[in-house]
Computed example of a mutant assay.
Amino acid sequence: MTDVVRLDAVSKVYGKGQGAVAALREVTASIPRGTFTAVMGPSGSGKSTFLHCAAGLDVPSSGSVRLGGTELAGMGETELTELRRRRVGFVFQSFNLIPALDVVENVTLPLRLAGARVDREWLAEILRRVGLEGRAGHRPAQLSGGQQQRVAIARALVTRPEVVFGDEPTGALDTMTAREVLGLLREVVESMGQTVVMVTHDPVAASYAGSVLFLADGRIVDAMSAPTADKVAERMTRMGAYA
């Protein structure tokens, strides 16, 4: 397996002088292609900063971030925007759908912004996989929270990205709906060969991933393969997350 994302000695410092805060400290990590990785840690551990640096949304203070074979350091904002639009998918806690657009229009928005052609067969395939075939003409207000997040996942997949980043993607959903969405993300990895990196604070959500990276004080302090909710929660407790 090749690495889709690679961070080498990445640090991120916000502010200067005595007010400087180190959000990431010399973080080195690799995300293999076709895997589902959860990133966990206490509040303030650097989870969101890790995701933002890995996805090219934020620029590290030092170190190297590679997406596929592309080094992100030195790229301008226009280049980074173009790279994210073509090669990265995003799913956020707030679904970030446009109320005036229907499902198909929301899903294909990244393609239209990029001036790319919509592959109708691929669009139909994605809508089928996320369970929205019968909702194509609906607007967000006509959909449940779980259906809205499915639209967001379809939107993240429509460009055939190299990696999908999820930032607390089930944080706004009830327990049953969250499990459906997590099952869908796992299916996207297993049946479509997609790569998913998900930041979460929820041990149950992390248990759907194939592996978990644990962050504390801006450093990766542990990793776990074949996680279970109980094992993840126990490890988090020892990190002081729930103390």
Rank of each mutant, 00 (worst) to 15 (best):
M1R: 11
K12M: 14
V21W: 04
V21E: 15
L24C: 13
P32H: 05
T37H: 04
G41T: 06
P42E: 08
T49A: 09
H52I: 00
H52F: 01
E77G: 00
R86N: 04
R87G: 02
R87L: 01
F95I: 09
A100G: 06
A100R: 12
P110T: 04
L111S: 14
R117C: 02
R117V: 02
E121V: 00
W122F: 13
E125Q: 11
I126N: 13
R128V: 05
R129V: 00
G131F: 00
L132Y: 09
G134E: 10
R135P: 07
P140R: 07
G145V: 02
G146T: 05
Q147W: 05
R150G: 07
A154W: 03
A156Q: 06
A156L: 10
L157V: 11
P169G: 15
G171R: 11
T177Y: 13
L184A: 13
L185G: 05
R186P: 05
E187P: 00
E187Q: 14
E187V: 02
V188L: 09
E190V: 11
E190A: 06
V196I: 15
T200Q: 09
D202N: 15
S207T: 13
S211R: 15
D217H: 15
G218T: 00
M224G: 08
D230C: 05
V232E: 05
G240I: 11
A241C: 15
